[in-house]
Nucleic acid binder design. Structure first.
Length: 748
DNA sequence: ATAGGGTTAG
C-alpha cells in the first residue's frame, strides 16, 4: 500500500509535465475555466505550471486574473515576468506592460522584444524605436521584424523598408519580407503591394496568401482568384482565405465548391464554411455541416448560435448554448446580443448575471442593450459597475446619449475622456449631425483632424451630411477633397453622403458626377441621386434615372418611389405620377406608405384635382399621417377650398397641436374665401391654446452682453445701422468666394 | 511554459 502511495521524484516530475501539457492545450482551445480547475487541483506544480496559467488567462482576456496569479507566485523567474508583459501586450495594455518592464529585476532579449512589439502594435512607433535603439547586445531577427511590422502596419512603409535594408543580411528572413508586404496589403495599398511582391527575392506561401487577402479586401475578386491559382503550394490558410473571399462577396456556391475541393480541412476551414452559410442565412445547411463535424471549438458553437439568432430563432440558439460542453464568454455574449437586439432585456440580464468571467465585449453588449432601448440610466449604472472601464463602453454611452437627443450629456462624457478613438469622434460627430447641430458637427470634424487623427469613411459621411443640411457647399467641397486624398473615396457610405451633399446644395451635376465616379454603387446611391434630382425639380431626369436604375438591375424600394412621385409632383407630371403610384405595388411589389400618398395628394392638389385628392385620402387603407393631411391642406390653400381645408386642418390640430403653420394656413384659406368669422375662430383657437407665432430671433454676444435681433422690428435700437452693415456684408458676400473654415481644414 | 508574418467566432 505505502509503496504505491509514495511516488518517486521522477514520477512526480512526469505527472507535472503531463498536466502542464494539458493546461497549455486547454488554454489554447479557449477552455480557460477548465484550465483553472485543473491548475487548482494539481497536487504539485512547478514554475512552468504557473507561467502557463498566467499566459492562458491573459490570452483569454482575463488579464486581471493573470496579474493576480503573477502577484501570488512565490518564485517568479524571468519567464514569468516576460509572460506577464506579453499578457498585457496581448490586451493592448501598454501602460501596465511598460511599468512591469521598468520594474523587472533582470531583462533578456525576449523582454526587450516584447516591449518593442507592444509599442509597435499600438502605434507608438517612436517609443518602440527608442527601445529598439537602446537595447543592449545583438538584436535578434525577431526584434527587427517586430519593429518592421510596426512601421508597416501603421502605414510607415518607407521606415519599414529602410530598416529592412539596414538589418544584417544574415538576420533577414521570410518574416521580415512578409511583414513589409502585410503593411501594404492590410492597408489596401495593392499597387505598391504588388510592386513590392514582384521585387521580393523569395516568396513563401504566406506572401501569396497576403496578396490574395489584400485583393479580396479591395474587392478585386478576380485578381485574388488568379493569385490563389498561381500560389505554388497553397496551404489550408490559402484555401480558407479564398473560400472566405467567395462567401463574403456573395458567391456561397463557389465557396462550397472550394470547400469540397480542399485537399485537407482543419477546424478553421469547417468554421469558415459554416460562417459562410450563416452569412447567407442558410442555417439548415450550416447546421448540417455542424452535425458532420468530428471536432468543434468555441468558434464553431458561437457561429452556429449566431446563425439561429440571425434568423430570429432565439430559442434554438439558447438550446445550443445550453448544450455546449464548455461554455465560454464569446458564445454567451453572442446569445446576450441576440436577446438585446430583440429587446428581451429580462432574459439578457438573467444570462448576463450568470456569466462568470465577463469581458469587455460582454459588458458592452449589455450596456449597448440598455442604450438601445432608451434606458440610459441603466446603461450608465452598468458602466459604473465595470471593474475595468473600456473605451468601447464609453463610446456606447456617448452614442446612446446622442440617440436619445441628449447631446449635452454626450459631450460631457466626451470632454472627460482621457483616451479617445475614431469611433468616439464618430459617435459625437454623427450625434451632432442627427440632432441638428450641424455647425458643431463640422467643428468637431476639424478638431479631430487637429488632434492628428484620421477621419474614416463614417466620419466623412457624417461631416458631409452636416454640410448637406446646412447647404454648406464650400465646406462640403473641401471635405470632398479630403475624402479623395484619404483614399476612402470608393467607400459606399462616404460616396453616398457625397452625392447627397451636392444634391442638397443644389449642385445636381456634381452629384451626378460623384455618382458616376463611384467604383460601385448600391440601392442607396441610386435613391440618393433620384431624390436629389426630385428635390431640385428635375422631373423628367428623375424618371429617366429611375429607368436607368432598373436597366442596371436594381430593384426600387419605397424610398425610390417617394423620390419619383415627388419629382412628378414638382414638375407637374400628373399622368406619369399616377401611373407610378399605380404600378409600384403591382409591378414592383413595393407597398405604399403614407409618404407616397402625401406625394400623390400634393400632385393632384397642384393640378387642381382637389376632389380626387380628398377621395384618395378618405379611402386610404393605411393610417393617414400629418404629411398627408398637410399636403391636402396645402392643396386647399392653393386652390381655395375652405371645406376640405377645415377637415384636414382639424385632423392636423389633433396630431400636431403645437404646429403654428397649420393654424395660419387654415386661417389664410378662410381669409381668401372671405369667411371672416372662420378666420376669427381659428385665430381665437390659436390664442385659446396659448400658441403664438414665434418671431424669428437671433443673437450674438459682444463683451459679455447678449444682443438679440428680432425679425421685422424697425423699433429695435440700432436697427438702421444693423440694416446698413448687413446690406454691405451681403454685397461683399456676392463678390467673394467664401471658404469658411478653410484655414482650419487645410486642404494643402 | 514566454517574443515576430498569414486563416475562423463575440
Amino acid at each position: 500500500m505505502a509503496s504505491s502511495m509514495l511516488k518517486s521524484a521522477g514520477e512526480i516530475q512526469n505527472l507535472i509535465f503531463s498536466q502542464n501539457q494539458k493546461l497549455t492545450h486547454l488554454a489554447r482551445c479557449g477552455r480557460i475555466d477548465e484550465a483553472v480547475k485543473l491548475f487548482e487541483s494539481m497536487p504539485a506544480r512547478n514554475a512552468v505550471s504557473w507561467n502557463c496559467m498566467i499566459s492562458g488567462l491573459a490570452k483569454n482576456g482575463r488579464v486581471a486574473d493573470a496579474r493576480h496569479l503573477f502577484d501570488r507566485m512565490a518564485s517568479k523567474n524571468l519567464i514569468s515576468w516576460n509572460t506577464m508583459i506579453a499578457g498585457y501586450s496581448h490586451n493592448n495594455r501598454v501602460l501596465e506592460a511598460s511599468q512591469l518592464f521598468d520594474e523587472m529585476p533582470k531583462r533578456d532579449s525576449y523582454s526587450w522584444t516584447l516591449m518593442i512589439s507592444c509599442y509597435s502594435r499600438n502605434g507608438e512607433l517612436e517609443r518602440a524605436r527608442w527601445l529598439f535603439d537602446s537595447m543592449p547586445g545583438v538584436k535578434t531577427p525577431v526584434c527587427y521584424n517586430a519593429m518592421i511590422a510596426g512601421y508597416a502596419k501603421n502605414g510607415m512603409f518607407q521606415d519599414a523598408i529602410v530598416l529592412l535594408t539596414e538589418m544584417p543580411v544574415s538576420a533577414r528572413n521570410m518574416v521580415s519580407w512578409n511583414s513589409v508586404l502585410a503593411g501594404y496589403t492590410q492597408n489596401q495599398e495593392m499597387v505598391q503591394g504588388l510592386k513590392f511582391f514582384g521585387e521580393m527575392q523569395e516568396k513563401d506561401v504566406v506572401s501569396w496568401n497576403l496578396m490574395v487577402e489584400g485583393f479580396l479586401q479591395v474587392g478585386d475578386l478576380e485578381s485574388a482568384w488568379s493569385f490563389f491559382r498561381a500560389t505554388p503550394c497553397p496551404n489550408v490558410a490559402s484555401w480558407v482565405t479564398m473560400l472566405n473571399g467567395f462567401s463574403k462577396s456573395g458567391n456561397i456556391d463557389e465557396a462550397r465548391r472550394l470547400f469540397d475541393e480542399m485537399p485537407e480541412r482543419n477546424l478553421v476551414a469547417w468554421n469558415a464554411m459554416i460562417s459562410g452559410y450563416v452569412q447567407f442565412l442558410q442555417i439548415e445547411e450550416a447546421y448540417r455541416l455542424f452535425g458532420e463535424m468530428s471536432e468543434r471549438n468555441s468558434v464553431t458553437w458561437t457561429t452556429m448560435i449566431n446563425g439561429y439568432i440571425r434568423i430570429g430563432k432565439l430559442e434554438k440558439a439558447r438550446e445550443l448554448l445550453d448544450s455546449m460542453p464548455f461554455k465560454n464568454v464569446v458564445a454567451q455574449t453572442a446569445m446576450l446580443t441576440g436577446y438585446v437586439q430583440c429587446m428581451r432585456m429580462e432574459e439578457a440580464v438573467e444570462l448576463f448575471e450568470k456569466i462568470s468571467t465577463k469581458d469587455d465585449f460582454c459588458w458592452n453588449a449589455m450596456i449597448s442593450g440598455y442604450a438601445h432601448c432608451g434606458r440610459m440610466d441603466k446603461a450608465v449604472e452598468l458602466y459604473k459597475r465595470m471593474p475595468t472601464k473600456s473605451l468601447f463602453s464609453l463610446n456606447t454611452i456617448i452614442a446612446g446619449h446622442a440617440q436619445q437627443g441628449e447631446m449635452h450629456k454626450a459631450l460631457e462624457v466626451f470632454k472627460q475622456m482621457r483616451e479617445r478613438n475614431t469611433v468616439t469622434w464618430n459617435s459625437i460627430i454623427s450625434g451632432l449631425t442627427q440632432n441638428g447641430f450641424y455647425c458643431d458637427s463640422i467643428k468637431h470634424f476639424v478638431l479631430l483632424r487637429n488632434e492628428g487623427r484620421k477621419p474614416d469613411p463614417c466620419t466623412y459621411a457624417c461631416g458631409l451630411a452636416a454640410c448637406a443640411y446646412l447647404a454648406a457647399l464650400q465646406v462640403g467641397k473641401q471635405l470632398h477633397l479630403l475624402l479623395v486624398k484619404s483614399g476612402h473615396v470608393n467607400d459606399l457610405f462616404a460616396g453616398n453622403a457625397l452625392i447627397n451633399m451636392y444634391a442638397r446644395c443644389g449642385r445636381i451635376s456634381s452629384a451626378k458626377q460623384a455618382f458616376d465616379e463611384m467604383a460601385s454603387v448600391d440601392l442607396i446611391s441610386w435613391n440618393t441621386l433620384i431624390t436629389g434630382y426630385a428635390l431640385n425639380g428635375f422631373g423628367r431626369e428623375t424618371i429617366s434615372l429611375f429607368k436607368e436604375m432598373e436597366v442596371n438591375g436594381f430593384r426600387p424600394d419605397d424610398i425610390t418611389f417617394v423620390g419619383v412621385l415627388s419629382a412628378c409632383s414638382h414638375a407637374g407630371l400628373i399622368d406619369e405620377g399616377l401611373k407610378y403610384f399605380d404600378s409600384m405595388s403591382r409591378d414592383h411589389s413595393v407597398e405604399r406608405v403614407a409618404e407616397h400618398y402625401a406625394c400623390v395628394v400634393d400632385l393632384l392638389g397642384r393640378a387642381g384635382r382637389l376632389e380626387e385628392a380628398y377621395k384618395l385620402v378618405t379611402e386610404m387603407p393605411i393610417k393617414v399621417n400629418a404629411g398627408v393631411w398637410g399636403a391636402l391642406l396645402g392643396a386647399c390653400r392653393m386652390h381655395g377650398n375652405p371645406d376640405i381645408a377645415k377637415f384636414a386642418a382639424e385632423k392636423l390640430f389633433v396630431i400636431e397641436p403645437q404646429k403654428t403653420s397649420n393654424y395660419v394656413l387654415l386661417s389664410n384659406v378662410h381669409a381668401d374665401a372671405r369667411r371672416w368669422e372662420d378666420v376669427d375662430r381659428v385665430r381665437s383657437l390659436l390664442k385659446e391654446i396659448g400658441i403664438q407665432k414665434q418671431p424669428g430671433c437671433s443673437w450674438i454676444d459682444i463683451k459679455k452682453k447678449v444682443c438679440s435681433f428680432v425679425s421685422d422690428d424697425p423699433m429695435q435700437p440700432g436697427a438702421t445701422e444693423v440694416g446698413f452693415v448687413l446690406e454691405m456684408l451681403c454685397a461683399h458676400i456676392r463678390n467673394t468666394e467664401i471658404m469658411p473654415w478653410s484655414s482650419l481644414l487645410d486642404c494643402g
